[in-house]
Design a binder for these strands. Structure first.
Length: 280
DNA sequence: GTCGCTGTAGACGGTCTCGA
DNA sequence: TCGAGACCGTCTACAGCGAC
């Protein structure tokens, strides 16, 4: 099933085609997004941290990606971005085209056959991570004339890798599900009690399968919840309460760390596609 | 009243060592 | 390999302030 989102304004124009992967990839690959974008109002945007591994197969002009305080790197064919504890900045020429693939951390770990802490706070090129098969995938997507063909090629690529993948570790999968279900509103002690394992075991499992500590992931989920609530609620005090923060000051600190701006500035810079904010 | 900011004490979580 | 305990840094809870 696909969902098409179009936006046309005086300065900006884009089309995004969202699709779910083959059901056999459930729990590994979350969704695909085929995009074609031309923007005049901004060329730099802040991408907020989330609970998923994002891969971009770039089919247009090179994209530059950086993080606060570190230099930009240019990516011509695409990249994989691991989990981050702050926002990333992307810069384009104003026009971009490609496919975004969202993977679960466990899915990325098993399909990429990589300890996830190797990808944490990193943006790694397609070729560096997947070598020749990655270059072949890029060629296939570039040659395809319709988004359905690109999604089919991605399904085939990941299903091939799924054949050789190990099974997920149940305790880590359960911990991730619990964190997600509570939007991060669960203490790590409660989590280890529920799972019947030690903090040390849980932390090591998260470093291997997710790339960040359980607490950091819980904070990212809570922040994402607050961002989602801000689309429908007006009062920041109300949002902080509903998202599970102790008070507004508590929430402001997370906004500054994860979005690089206090809530009001964040809302002012927010982009209409909901996926990020304008950057200077 | 809302929002953003600072300071501080105590709780919590990450990491290390040691032992089973 | 994993759990228990200790230590230390970070986060949370709370108070208070000024600007709008």
């Amino acid at each position: 099933m696909t969902r098409i989102v179009r936006h046309v304004s005086e300065q900006d124009q884009w089309e995004m085609v969202h699709a779910l992967p083959d059901p056999r990839l459930d729990g590994y690959v979350i969704r695909y997004c085929d995009y074609d974008e031309r923007t005049g109002s901004f060329v730099r945007r802040r991408e907020l941290p989330g609970d998923r591994i994002v891969a971009i197969v770039n089919l247009g002009a090179p994209i530059r990606v950086g993080a606060p305080g570190s230099p930009f790197a240019t990516h011509a064919t695409g990249f994989f971005a691991g989990l981050h504890d702050t926002y990333a900045i992307t810069e384009t020429s104003g026009a971009q085209r490609g496919v975004q693939i969202d993977l679960t951390p466990v899915g990325a770990h098993l399909l990429l056959r990589l300890p996830m802490h190797h990808l944490t706070h990193q943006v790694v090129t397609l070729e560096a991570l997947l070598d020749r098969p990655g270059a072949h995938l890029h060629e296939q997507l570039a040659d395809a004339t319709h988004h359905a063909q690109r999604f089919a090629a991605l399904d085939a690529f990941f299903l091939t890798r799924l054949d050789d993948a190990l099974s997920p570790v149940p305790s880590i999968t359960r911990a991730l599900a619990r964190l997600k279900a509570t939007q991060g509103a669960v203490t790590i002690n409660a989590l280890t009690d529920e799972l019947g394992c030690s903090r040390r075991y849980l932390n090591r499992g998260f470093q291997e399968h997710v790339g960040v500590s359980p607490k950091l992931l819980a904070r990212i989920l809570r922040f994402n919840h607050a961002v989602a609530l801000s689309a429908t609620m007006r009062s920041w005090a109300e949002i902080s309460q509903h998202a599970g923060y102790y008070d507004q000051a508590h929430m402001v600190r997370d906004f500054q760390q994860f979005a690089g701006a206090p809530p009001t500035e964040f809302a002012r810079r927010r982009l209409p596609d909901g996926g990020g904010v304008r950057s200077d």
